[in-house]
């Protein structure tokens, strides 16, 4: 790593900086926000610090991975996790009971089976209709769905183009955080469950709308992951986009 080969001894290496930022941050950090701090510091201090401004997303991600491995190896009780697209410092799950005792969080609410089933269907099939969920579960899901929306685990994505313009549901950022998932695609068997045949067959007359929606979603995603742009304004814009 170029950073660690700096001529001045006191200059921290990228891995250290990333660790310090994750420690200090009150919320999960995206790579872009880390890079913004690097650029600001680099430009502000100048001199040997200028090299930090040049750190790329890939370098930062590499540093985080290094940090992850180091923490894991040295059994510090801490780790870095990638949840909902952002990195955060968290305790090792094995130490959870102690942390819970310390924080007096022994009463945690768990979701019921019907809620979990409904949530699983929404997660894999999103954006999906209430009728699709009911088809899979074989029962009415009205009340469960409403509760999940109240809990902010499920949200209304938009109205579909089907007759009566029923709502389409999807999962929220909080869903990812609650289950510690980075993205929906990380759920096991997501390809298979997403493309299960009955829905495809039955939705024959509406096939035009669904690929469109998926295309739209893909466009959204790819625009978020644009190549490194070093201008601060662009970075700010991206960070803002991520946060909204």
């Amino acid at each position: 790593m170029a950073m660690s080969e700096s001529t001045v001894d006191v200059l921290p290496e990228l891995k250290q900086i990333v660790g310090a930022l994750l420690f200090a941050a009150k919320e999960p950090l995206t790579v872009k926000r880390i890079r913004k701090a690097m650029i600001e510091t680099g430009n502000g201090f100048g001199g040997p610090y200028e090299q930090y401004a040049k750190a790329t997303d890939v370098q930062i991600e590499g540093a985080i991975e290094e940090l992850m491995a180091d923490l894991d190896r040295s059994k510090l009780g801490l780790g870095v996790a990638l949840v909902a697209g952002a990195y955060r410092l968290q305790n090792d799950a094995a130490c959870g009971p102690f942390v819970r005792a310390l924080l007096e969080k022994n009463q945690t609410m768990r979701l019921s089976k019907p809620a979990l089933e409904t949530l699983a269907i929404v997660a894999y099939r999103q954006p999906c209709l209430r009728s699709e969920i009911e088809e899979v579960r074989g029962v009415s899901v009205d009340a469960v769905l409403r509760k999940l929306i109240d809990m902010q685990l499920v949200r209304v994505v938009r109205r579909s183009e089907l007759p009566g313009r029923p709502w389409l549901f999807g999962t929220t950022q909080k869903f990812l955080e609650h289950f510690g998932i980075n993205q929906i695609e990380d759920l096991p068997g997501s390809q298979e469950l997403r493309r299960a045949m009955p829905v495809d067959e039955k939705k024959k007359d509406t096939t035009e709308t669904f690929p469109d929606i998926e295309k739209e979603l893909k466009v959204d995603k790819s625009s978020d992951e644009e190549e490194d742009d070093n201008s601060m304004a662009a970075l700010d814009e991206e960070i803002q986009k991520e946060e909204t």
Partner: peptide, 27 residues
Amino acid sequence: AADHLEDLEVHMENVFARESEHVELGV
């Protein structure tokens, strides 16, 4: 899949992020 989510939920009960920001359910 729901069982898997349940496992994840139980696992996450033991995980606290900085600021002890444990994701709480509810409004």
